[in-house]
Simulated assay, not measured.
Amino acid sequence: MKAKILSLSVIAALGFAVAAQAAVPETAYVGVRGGWAHMDMDTNDWASADDKDAVGYGIYAGYNFTSWAAIEAGYNFFDGFSYIEDQTSSEDFRVHGPEAALRLAFPLGPDGSDIYVRGGAMWATYKFDSSTKNYTAHEIAPFVGAGVQYAVTKNFGVRVGYDYYFNVVDKDGDPDTDIGLLYAGLQFTFGGSEPAPAPAPAPQTVTENFTLDAATLFPFDGSSLCEEGVKAVNDVVDSVNAKNIQNAAYDVKGYTDRIGSEAYNQTLSEKRAQAVADQLQAAGVAPEQLTVTGMGEADPVSTGCEGLRGNKLVDCLAPDRRVELSVTGEVTEAE
């Protein structure tokens, strides 16, 4: 009978284990449990049969030092046993008392579920109650057990397990008696540190490039922004803000075409770059965020203009007349 009950408890434990998710370190818990108790009595001169059935129930509490080690304390009641002495006297037999145990677990996940074994001792108070005798005695009853614990939520869990208590009765004149308990329990867990927040995503450095046509920004051969030019510069600032680019640095470079003297073109490119920079400040960009450079005739981007004269050359060189903005800053990707 002992082997059958132990097999049932192992099967129940494994069945719950496949659905389970380990005790959370530095947490405490309280619970209740109840189930089927059986009595294994060494009758010898007694007429009663072994493995008498009853109910077992109790309360328990514990503390998880780690995900695999805990201490527990509890109080048990085994009630409803009976047997017949010498085929004449009906005996009622009940047991109760506190227990202490060490619980060792194999974690099945981070949320408080595990397969466990436990062992300890119970201060068993047992009482015989019959027509021939009525007395109470005490024994220290060691026990071992195994089971599975499943964390339904962070705070609420269930247990299924089997405990076997040795020598609950071990007194001359009384039958040596062990008790097994196949139980289910409900548990509430509290305490423990909150999980550390996930680290904020690291900002990424990005660069946005804008090329503004001088014909859009300025009157012919001028360096004062026209109304359309003001809007074009403001659109750049709006685009940077919309992308939430932080700590933005604006590098403003003015360019001209190769028509005219080099000195004239250098001065014009500087004035145009500064005009754009002034409008950036008007749109909310701080002066320390700006770098302003006149590039004159440098870095032409036009092609196919060789051999052209007059208006055709002016039109062909239009891409060279420009202001380029390079905006570098940081963005943080949303999780």
Rank of each mutant, 00 (worst) to 15 (best):
P107V: 02
D129L: 00
W123S: 13
T132V: 15
E99K: 12
Y150I: 11
K133H: 09
D92V: 01
E139D: 10
A151S: 08
A137H: 14
V148Q: 08
K127F: 05
I140P: 10
P107G: 04
H96L: 10
A146Y: 13
Y116R: 06
P142S: 07
S113Y: 05
A100R: 14
A121K: 09
T132G: 04
G147H: 00
A105T: 09
T125V: 12
N134E: 12
T125Q: 13
D114A: 08
V144F: 09
T125S: 12
S131V: 08
W123K: 14
T125N: 14
R103W: 03
G120P: 05
T132W: 13
K133L: 07
G119R: 14
S90G: 09
V148A: 14
V152Y: 12
A137M: 09
F93T: 06
D92Y: 09
T136Q: 07
P98I: 09
Q149I: 04
M122D: 07
A151T: 02
A146M: 11
A124L: 00
R103V: 11
F93E: 02
E139V: 08
V152P: 02
S113I: 02
V95L: 08
G97A: 03
S130L: 00
F106Y: 14
P107L: 00
P98S: 12
P110C: 01
V148P: 01
R94Y: 14
R94S: 15
G147F: 00
G147I: 04
V152S: 06
P110F: 03
H138S: 12
V117K: 10
I115N: 04
G97P: 05
G145T: 00
K133G: 06
T125M: 10
G120H: 11
Y116K: 06
A105W: 03
G119P: 04
F93W: 02
